[in-house]
Design a protein around this nucleic acid. Structure first.
Length: 327
DNA sequence: AATAGCGTCAACCGCACCTGA
DNA sequence: GTCAGGTGCGGTTGACGCTAT
């Protein structure tokens, strides 16, 4: 923890006062002060709040701490496959509009989503030697990662019937391999275990462009460019059929669990917001193995749409293999 | 056991925008 | 119109923990 000295000049009496502003990690005491103040007086007017709450922090720092960490409805823990899928799709639509993306993921902050993108998604892009904001990367996301996420979601829903997600609905937003430009039209997954989700979805998704829709960018456009098919809102609704109930308790970074300070009610301990997804991140499913299986599946005979999509499966697989070797 | 490398994420910074005086 | 304060956003940093050597 370090601090900076800020000289404050008061207009009333011209007395200059030195205020030590704290920086760095928040202490439990500071968290408690902030929580109690907001519980009594509400959010907003952060500079005033910082002073009145007795916090030697900037208003910005208080706001950030509250919004990104202390706010009771913050969901913690790994992002679920559903959430990852939604982030991928919304990012392909809006780019780095993190706050806008976060609005569609209840309990997740823009900071968390931004970190996720930078640490995981961009890492995968680097490993594939693809620019994370390139069309090529977008297609890799759509044609490989999203199906894997769907697969994960379906596995999760099969193992746990308590989930509210609707896999059959979700399937409709996932591209069929046959719809992706980097995959030949007559492509069939090498075996049923490679892309079980794809083999299911291929019967649901259209294999031909919908009149009036833009097919050139891959099959997700079916869902997102044609309002008659599926709007983003409807997808979000299908991903989050009900907004998560206001969490009853929450846990500090230091592990101390607190009762919701806003409601002031006592709650059962099993309703903590500490959300832990036992499954790993969806991208490890990519692991280049699926690409390698593509490679093993007679890549030489593929009739890829190189001219249109500006890249070839063989090229991508080669990159993948190269990176695999490095790893 | 020591340490270098890497990944993660909370927190900070700078900038832009909004609003009210 | 303009200025200041408040707020929001996106990019970046740095501390910390884990893993490999």
């Amino acid at each position: 923890m370090h601090s900076i000295t800020k000289r404050v000049c008061h207009p009333n009496n011209n007395i200059e006062e030195e205020t030590e502003l704290r920086r760095g990690p928040w202490t439990l005491e500071e968290d408690t002060l902030l929580i109690h103040y907001i519980a009594r007086h509400g959010e907003g007017h952060w500079n005033l709040l910082a002073k009145r709450a007795g916090l030697k922090r900037t208003g910005k720092s208080c706001r950030l701490r509250w919004l990104n960490y202390l706010k009771p409805d913050i969901k913690r823990g790994n992002l679920t496959p559903q959430e990852q899928l939604l982030i991928l799709e919304l990012h392909s639509k809006w780019g780095n509009r993190w706050s806008k993306i976060a609005q569609h993921l209840p309990g997740r902050t823009d900071n968390e989503i931004k970190n996720y993108w930078r640490t995981r998604v961009q890492k995968q892009a680097r490993q594939l030697n693809i620019e994370s904001n390139s069309k090529r990367f977008l297609e890799a996301v759509r044609c490989f990662w999203m199906p894997r996420l769907l697969q994960k979601m379906e596995q999760t829903s099969n193992s746990s019937t308590s989930t509210n997600s609707s896999p059959s609905t979700l399937t409709t937003i996932i591209p069929s391999a046959q719809d992706c430009e980097l995959v030949p039209n007559d492509f069939v997954p090498p075996n049923s275990t490679t892309f079980p989700a794809l083999s299911d979805s291929s019967s649901i998704l259209p294999n031909k462009p919908i009149p009036g829709s833009n097919h050139s960018n891959g099959c997700l456009n079916y869902a997102f460019t044609n309002q008659n098919i599926l709007s983003t809102d409807s997808i979000i609704t299908s991903l989050f059929p009900q907004v998560e109930e206001h969490p009853k308790t929450y846990t500090f970074s230091n592990g101390i669990e607190k009762t919701d300070p806003i409601s002031g009610l006592d709650h059962e301990s099993n309703s903590s917001v500490h959300y832990v997804d036992s499954s790993s991140y969806g991208f490890e499913g990519l692991n280049l193995d699926s690409i390698l299986e593509f490679e093993a599946f007679d890549v030489s005979g593929l009739n890829c749409h190189v001219a249109e999509s500006d890249w070839a499966l063989g090229d991508m697989a080669a990159d993948a293999l190269w990176n695999m070797g490095e790893m």
